[in-house]
Write a protein that binds this DNA or RNA. Structure first.
Length: 420
DNA sequence: TCTGGGGTCCTAGGACCC
DNA sequence: TCTGGGGTCCTAGGACCC
């Protein structure tokens, strides 16, 4: 059996924790660069606000209705997430952290009512000890646990905990559950299923032509079908190392010049390499891309370029040099650029890598100590204070976060002050 | 007129998730 | 004016080999 524990409107709940007066007010949290809504409370949903909506389109409504709005504060959310997860780990041995706000727990066999009780206990403990409301769904497979969790959240009578029934009622639950809400079925797949008259989870579970499902939804779709039939087959390994590392960002203002793009790319390479070294990995290839704004009716251009390193590296300076070279190859003058990014690929462990035949082993780790010192200094100050000059000196490539709350739990100077 | 069969590797793109 | 960022997996098709 699996339990899926999922924090309710996680980012918003984190903001409310330190601003209890917001408990009754609608709250939304915005994406990087304050672009779109990425988390919202049910009060905000009632006002008609939606996940993924651009902020500028709903700004007026938000202000009119006195909705509290925040930029994302990852230092805060990450820290609270760790606290939630450590409670789950105290309760259950086998915890798989699936994302910042949810985890799968593998449960031992017990009676139905005991599952219910366990779910309630977890929910209460997390709320009491961290202050974050969670929902718990329990079922035989991960896909079913996701469905159970959905019901735990949506149905008022479930009160945040739902154990998938083990008797004849289970198909009734599936009949009421739209196929489009199943985990792993997106809008494109649900359209295709609709053509086959598959509307509910129940329809998919009992659809007999498995080859057809394989054909239109590929392997993943067949797995989902099996999971609905209580055959567990979806793996979610979250502890493996990353296979690619990305750093990409939209620009606040439009960019036209090669020199500006060079700076931006250098900043993103710096960030990506930091992540790479933190993972203790090396990259064997790097891809950079630039593009115009697809939402605008201006001439469009998007291009990418890739380089393979003869010896895998994690060296920021080496990559910046290559990045500039690639950029020159793909840059075209006259376009209004909106976004650029870097992708590090073919990652391998930094303690075991293949030298190229022509490399001098002594030169491979030339800058290793320098990189270590740079990382240490930047970690200490929580921002990039030492960097390559290629990144520019104005810091204009930083993320916009105009409405960020304090880092209450990770910065001494941001500690909450209470007047008595 | 008529041009095989079997295989690998790589890449781009689609779909999905949070 | 203003539309996120980071990630995984799968498949089809091209290029290539013998």
């Amino acid at each position: 059996m699996y339990a899926l524990v999922d924090c309710n409107s996680f980012y918003c709940s984190c903001e409310r924790l330190f601003r209890p007066e917001l408990l009754k007010r609608p709250v939304v949290v915005l994406s990087n660069n304050d672009g779109c809504i990425v988390s919202l409370t049910k009060e905000a949903k009632l006002l008609g606000l939606k996940m993924g909506e651009p902020f500028f389109k709903v700004e007026k409504l938000i202000k009119e209705k006195k909705v509290a709005y925040f930029s994302s504060n990852y230092a805060l959310y990450g820290d609270l997430s760790n606290r939630v997860m450590s409670i789950l780990e105290e309760e259950i041995n086998d915890v798989e952290v699936y994302s910042i706000d949810e985890a799968f727990l593998k449960l031992e066999a017990m009676e139905q009512f005991e599952y219910q009780r366990l779910g309630e206990k977890i929910k209460e403990r997390v709320f009491l000890e961290v202050g974050i409301p969670v929902s718990v769904g329990i079922a035989k497979t991960k896909v079913l646990a996701k469905i159970a969790n959905h019901i735990a959240k949506k149905n008022a009578e479930a009160q945040g905990v739902f154990v998938f029934p083990d008797d004849g009622k289970k198909d009734d639950v599936l009949k009421k559950f739209p196929v489009s809400e199943i985990w792993g079925i997106g809008s494109s797949s649900s359209m295709k299923l609709l053509m086959l008259k598959i509307k509910s989870a129940y329809d998919l579970k009992y659809y007999e032509n498995e080859k057809e499902i394989q054909k239109i939804l590929t392997k993943k779709g067949r797995q989902i079908q099996d999971e609905l039939r209580e055959i567990s087959c979806v793996e979610t390994e979250s502890f493996e190392k990353k296979k690619t590392i990305l750093s990409t960002k939209s620009f606040g203002a439009s960019v036209y010049l090669l020199k500006e793009l060079e700076e931006a790319i250098s900043v993103y390479i710096t960030r990506a390499c930091e992540k790479l070294r933190k993972e203790e990995s090396l990259a064997a290839s790097m891809l950079i891309f630039i593009q115009t704004n697809p939402f605008k009716e201006t001439p469009q251009y998007a291009m990418q370029a890739m380089v393979h390193f003869s010896t895998p590296t994690d060296n920021t300076f080496v990559m910046i040099k290559e990045g500039k070279r690639l950029l020159e190859k793909i840059f075209l003058e006259g376009f209004e650029y909106k976004k650029a990014g870097v992708m590090l690929m073919d990652l391998s462990d930094s303690d075991s890598f293949q030298l190229s035949l022509f490399d001098d082993p002594k030169k491979i780790n030339q800058n290793e100590n320098l990189m270590k010192v740079v990382d240490k200094i930047n970690q200490r100050y929580h921002e990039v204070v030492v960097k390559s000059l290629a990144c520019g000196t104005e810091g204009r490539w930083k993320m916009q976060r105009q409405f960020k709350s304090p880092s209450y739990t990770t910065r001494w100077s941001d500690l909450l002050k209470i007047k008595i």
